[in-house]
Design a protein around this nucleic acid. Structure first.
Lengths: 231, 231
DNA sequence: TAGATTGTTAATCGATTAACAATC
DNA sequence: TAGATTGTTAATCGATTAACAATC
C-alpha cells in the first residue's frame, strides 16, 4: 500500500476507472466486480485489481467494490478532491475549443484565464473569459498558485511559453504543440499532439502487408547499391 | 525485414521521427545519427535504431541516416505517401477546432466533410467546408472510400456514430468522446480523451506523498484496523 | 456453509537497454 | 587504416497475466 513510484501506465488508467464509476453511479449501481469493470473498460480484471491494490484494499472479497466508496478513493488518489485551477496559453482555434470544452465537461478543473501573445486575440471573450496578454501570465500564475497549464500555441512558441510558466511555478503541462518540450527534472509534460495521433492511425487504416511490401520493392528498385551514397 | 506484428508502441513513435526529420530537413541538415535523433526526440538511440530496423536498414554505418531518404521511407511506412481523405463527425467546438487545425497543419490528411446531427449546426461553414447532416455520411464515406474518421460528438452519440461509419467501411477512428467504443476485430480506435489526459496530469501536479498519506489517514478513520487483518 | 471475488504472489510476456560485431 | 555508427543479438527490466489463498 502506498509504495511509491507507481508507473505512468497505471496512473493513466485511473481517470478511466473514475469515469466508469461516474457512469455506474448515475445508473444507480452500488456494487461492481473487477470482472464487470473489465467489461466496461476493456482492461483485464486482474489488471484493475492490481492497479487499485497499489493504493489500498478498497474492495470486499466475494462482493466487489462499492461504487461510491471507490469513486471517493479514486478522486483522492488522482488529486481531484479540490478543484484544480488551470490556465490555457494560446487562444487560437484549438485553445478556444479546449477552453469551451473543459468549462462544460470537466467538474474537477477550472480554467481561470486564457492567454495569447497576438494582440488581435487579446480582449476576445471565450465563454465569458477574457483573453489576456501573455505578459500578464506570471502574476496570475502566482496569484492563483497555478500548477497545471495547457499549451496550445504554435510549435515555434511552445518552448518559450513552457519556460515562462515553469519559471513561475507550473509543475505539469498538457502540451498540444507539435514539439518536444525540454523541461527540468520534476516537471511533467503530457503530449496531446493530434497530428501524431492521426498519423499513427493511418498506419492501421490500410493493409500493412501491401504497403510494406511496396517498401521492399522500392528499395530493390531504387538502391541497386546506392542505398547509401558512399561520399 | 518487414516481419509482421510490429507493436503499437513502435508505430506511435514513427510520426514523431517523421516530424523531427521534417524539421532537420528544413534546417538543411542532410545526415543525422541515431544519437542526435535521440537528443531531438527524447527516445534512446538504441530504441530509434531498433524501431527503424523493423522496416529495413536505412542508415549508413559510420555516418548515420540521410534525412531525405529516411523521411521518404517513413512516409511510405506510415502510409502517408498519398493523401488520406478523412471526415469529422461532430461539428461542435472541438470538431470545428480539429477541422480548422488539421486543414492548416497536416499536409498528409485532407478533411473532405464535416457532419453533425444537430440541424442548427448543419449548413455552417468551417473554413469553406459545409457542415452536412449525418445521414449524408454513408454515401460520402463510400464515394471517397473513407477509411479514417474523427469522432468529436458527445459521449452519448459516439457508439452510434462509430457503428455507422464502420458499417460503411471506416477502418480507423480517432475518438475524442469520453467513452470506450466497442468495435469489431480489425477496426482500430485511438482515444484522444482530453479530460483523461488532464486528470492524469493532475496526479503529478501536487506532491503525491502528501496526498497518498492523506488517503491512508482517511482509511484509518473509516476502517479501524481492517487495513489488512493478518488472518 | 458454499459461492464469489478480492488482494497478492509467481510466471509469462513484451519492451527497453546494453553490448558488440559488421562495416562505411 | 582508424574512427564512427549502424544493425542485431543477448541481458535486463517492467508490465501483464495466471493462479490461488484469504475471506466476505
Amino acid at each position: 500500500m502506498s509504495s511509491r513510484n507507481i508507473s505512468k501506465t497505471v496512473i493513466k488508467r485511473l481517470p478511466i476507472y473514475l469515469r466508469i464509476l461516474d457512469q455506474l453511479i448515475r445508473r444507480g449501481i452500488e456494487m461492481i466486480s473487477s470482472k464487470e469493470l473489465s467489461n466496461e473498460s476493456g482492461f483485464t480484471a486482474e489488471q484493475i485489481r492490481k492497479d487499485l491494490a497499489y493504493f489500498g484494499a478498497f474492495g470486499t472479497r466475494g462482493a466487489g467494490y462499492n461504487t461510491l466508496f471507490l469513486r471517493e478513493k479514486l478522486i483522492t488518489i488522482i488529486g481531484l478532491d479540490s478543484i484544480t485551477d488551470t490556465i490555457v496559453i494560446g487562444a487560437g482555434n484549438l485553445g478556444t475549443a479546449l477552453t469551451r470544452y473543459n468549462l462544460t465537461k470537466n467538474p474537477y478543473v477550472n480554467i481561470v484565464a486564457v492567454f495569447d501573445k497576438n494582440p488581435k486575440l487579446v480582449g476576445n471573450k471565450i465563454d465569458g473569459l477574457d483573453v489576456l496578454p501573455i505578459n500578464k501570465a506570471p502574476q496570475l500564475i502566482k496569484k492563483y498558485n497555478i500548477k497545471v497549464c495547457l499549451i496550445s500555441v504554435t510549435a515555434n512558441s511552445a518552448q518559450e511559453v513552457a519556460d515562462l510558466v515553469i519559471k513561475n511555478g507550473v509543475k505539469a503541462i498538457l502540451n498540444f504543440a507539435p514539439v518536444k518540450l525540454s523541461v527540468p527534472e520534476g516537471i511533467h509534460v503530457h503530449n496531446a499532439d493530434l497530428t501524431i495521433e492521426l498519423q499513427s492511425l493511418i498506419y492501421y487504416s490500410s493493409a500493412e502487408e501491401e504497403r510494406l511490401s511496396r517498401l521492399d520493392r522500392e528499395s530493390k528498385g531504387k538502391e541497386p547499391d546506392l542505398e547509401k551514397p558512399l561520399s
